[in-house]
């Protein structure tokens, strides 16, 4: 029974997450409260964990909630349910895209959408930046945050540095310089 609830709840979460990001947290919370899968304190924990672990927050939350409420089986059911809407909708849209992508209308449409994506990625950088740079942090913390962000930007934008190596390097520098 709980497996069915997990499947239904997380399928719905996957289906109604549009544009990704933290917008879906409200929906996750609503479903969790409705079924009492985990406690409100555990929900706060999930948000904290999702921030420091790789991968989409929806997948992280599904695995965590599923595991806490019904073990490994629950984790697998909830995680499958949350990605199933992606699989279905992408298959449908991908077919249509392959079929029409050479038409003049679709070409013009994407010529307008590409700059939007640039603006959205720029906005993401700005918003993640203001969330990361905390004026209440110590001077050295602020300084190192700025240096790491700046060096990463320069290396990846102009020197084709491998982003994965940069992340590993930043983690090591962080271990040494942050208090």
């Amino acid at each position: 029974m709980i497996l069915l609830q997990l499947f239904g709840g997380f399928f719905k979460i996957g289906l109604f997450t549009l544009g990704g990001g933290y917008a879906m947290l409200a929906l996750i919370k609503q479903e969790i409260v409705r079924y009492n899968w985990i406690t409100p304190q555990e929900f706060v924990d999930i948000v904290g964990i999702a921030e420091v672990t790789p991968g989409p927050i929806a997948v992280n939350a599904a695995t965590f909630v599923g595991f806490r409420s019904a073990g490994i089986k629950g984790a697998l059911v909830a995680t499958s349910a949350v990605v199933l809407p992606s699989l279905i909708s992408v298959i449908i849209v991908s077919r249509a895209w392959q079929k029409y992508k050479n038409s003049q209308t679709i070409q013009s449409m994407f010529a307008g959408i590409r700059p939007v994506v640039v603006g959205l990625v720029g906005a993401a950088a700005f918003m993640v930046g203001t969330a990361t740079f905390d004026v209440l942090d110590s001077f050295s913390h602020q300084l190192w945050t700025t240096v790491l962000a700046g060096v990463t930007f320069y290396g990846v934008a102009f020197k084709k540095w491998n982003p994965i190596r940069v992340i590993i390097g930043a983690a090591l520098v962080g271990l040494l310089v942050f208090l």
Partner: peptide, 16 residues
């Protein structure tokens, strides 16, 4: 600590 470093790098990464 390591994560503070990663967070800072992610800002530069997205800007790039």
């Amino acid at each position: 600590r390591a994560f503070s470093g990663v967070k800072a790098a992610v800002v530069g990464l997205i800007a790039a």
